[in-house]
Structure formats: structure tokens, C-alpha cells
């Protein structure tokens, strides 16, 4: 269960996130959508304790991230959009480090890591010997996802998780998300890829200018708005209109 109440983050007088309230029950995959700079990543960072909110609360399984950060973080798995890892560690060293931070001993962690390896079709030898700096972007993303799920968190926050994954891995990962949701995990999926969000998520929240614009099931949102698709609704809400005209103008000027 994830609950945000009046979550606000102000940077230099500008509200990056303003009075955001959301409740995401267990077993739900919530898609978090918004144009660039809407406040999606800032919201996720506040939820996982990387940024202190200016006001408001974020509770993970009933634990406030500000008052009991360690307990809240143990319930949480986060895949940041940057996919940052320690490049000077091998994949295995990195995952064992992450396991240790969650109090998982090596004997317990290794079989779990092997399961993820098999799922993502990664080779054990590469994981043991190759430094993360030499992994491809997709492989690094797989390691970041493994690092987020290794401790079996109740709430999973994903910021552009498919970025860099090949088509097979992406299909497998989407199925994994559905399975995790069936098992009662709360999942927040932030992305710019609307059709993936539409297919995978049970609910969609669209943030515009740091504020929650709409929050409902994708079909319901489309039906209520009278739009043809989620994409059309998104462009309506985010004020991005006249795309066809702009494309025509651009092509005319660029390709005279």
C-alpha cells in the first residue's frame, strides 16, 4: 500500500510537485504519466526518501518515509531512470552489496540472484567477472531491476524501467509486473511510453505542472474524457496540441 497526502516539493520558489495526493492499494499497477518536467521523477524520489518533501507525507505500507525511513525503505524497491550502478563493481559484487544492505546474507542472496539471472537470460560468468562499466545499457538496466526486487519489496517504484531493454526482456518484464501485482505488490510505473502504460497499468495518474490532473483506470479515463485514446487524452491535458501542423511545418522547413 502506498499513500501520498499533500506531497509538495518546492525548488527556489517553484513548485515541482504541488499538493499531490494518491492512494495505491496492494495488487495495483499505477501508471504515472506526464510531460517532461511534470514532476514524476521528483515524486518518486520523495516517496523513496531521496528527496525531502517541502510538505506532505508519503507512507509505504503504513510507514511514513520521513519518520521511519529505514523501515519504509525495507518495504520499497526503486529503479531510478538513470540506471546508476557502481561501474567499478562486477554485477555479482553489486547485487551482493545490495543484498547485504537489506540484511540478506550471501547464502540466501545467491539463489535469488540466480533466479533473476535466468529470468533475464544473463550469463553467470559475465555477472561474476565483468565490471558494470562494461555492461550494455540493457544489461545494466536488468541489474538495476534485480537490485530493486532482490529483497522482495511490497512497493515497487519504476522510473522508465524498459529503457534499454530488448523486446524479449521487455515482454518478460511486463509479464513479471503482472505477476507481482497478482501477488499483492503495489507498483508505480512512471513512463513516457503511453501504449505500454495503457496495456500494463490498472490505473493511470497524469501529472501536469506538478499537479495531479486525472487518476483512474485507462479505459475509464478515455471514456469519460471522450477522447479516442489515452494518447489523445494525454495531449489534451498537457496542452500539446497541433502536433500534425507542427510536424508539417518542420518537415517543410527542414526538407525544402
Amino acid at each position: 500500500m502506498l499513500s501520498l497526502q499533500g506531497l509538495t516539493k518546492t525548488f527556489g520558489g517553484h513548485d515541482a510537485v504541488a499538493d499531490l495526493s494518491l492512494d495505491v492499494p496492494p495488487g495495483t499497477i499505477l501508471g504515472l504519466l506526464g510531460p517532461n518536467g511534470a514532476g514524476k521523477t521528483t515524486t518518486l524520489r520523495m516517496v523513496c526518501g531521496m528527496l525531502a518533501p517541502t510538505s506532505g507525507t508519503a507512507t509505504i505500507c503504513g510507514i511514513d518515509i520521513r519518520t521511519d525511513p529505514l523501515a519504509a525503505k525495507r518495504k520499497l524497491g526503486f529503479v531510478p531512470d538513470s540506471g546508476s550502478v557502481y561501474e567499478a563493481l562486477t554485477g555479482l559484487e553489486f547485487l551482493l552489496l545490495i543484498a547485504a544492505l537489506y540484511g540478506i546474507d550471501e547464502a540466501t542472496a545467491r539463489p535469488r540472484i540466480t533466479q533473476f539471472l535466468e529470468f533475464f537470460e544473463l550469463h553467470e560468468k559475465i555477472l561474476e567477472n565483468k565490471l558494470l562499466g562494461y555492461y550494455s545499457k540493457g544489461m545494466r538496466r536488468k541489474i538495476a531491476i534485480t537490485a530493486a526486487l532482490l529483497h522482495n519489496p511490497s512497493v515497487v517504484l519504476l522510473d522508465e524501467p524498459l529503457d534499454g531493454l530488448d523486446a524479449n526482456a521487455a515482454v518478460g518484464f511486463k509479464k513479471l509486473l503482472e505477476t507481482l501485482a497478482r501477488e499483492g505488490k503495489t507498483i508505480v510505473y512512471s513512463s513516457h511510453v503511453l501504449d505500454v502504460v495503457e496495456r500494463v497499468c490498472h490505473r493511470v495518474a497524469i501529472i501536469v505542472g506538478g499537479k495531479l490532473a486525472v487518476d483512474d483506470a485507462p479505459d475509464e479515463l478515455v471514456r469519460r474524457s471522450g477522447a479516442d485514446s489515452l494518447e489523445q487524452l494525454f495531449t489534451q491535458l498537457t496542452g500539446s496540441t497541433g502536433v500534425d501542423d507542427r510536424v508539417a511545418d518542420f518537415a517543410k522547413n527542414l526538407l525544402p
Binding site: Y86, A88, A100, D105, N129, K130, L131, Y134
Partner: peptide
């Protein structure tokens, strides 16, 4: 074992450099 794991991590980063090449 959190602090021990962190010490181990920072020793590795210090000695290998953050952008080491091959283990």
C-alpha cells in the same frame, strides 16, 4: 553487516577507481 558491506564497497571503489575496466 551494513557498515561492513559499505566499507567493502568503498575500499573497492577507492582502489579500483569508479571507472575501472576489467576486474
Amino acid at each position: 553487516n551494513v557498515e561492513r558491506a559499505l566499507r567493502q564497497l568503498f575500499w573497492r571503489l577507492l582502489l579500483r577507481g569508479r571507472t575501472a575496466t576489467n576486474a
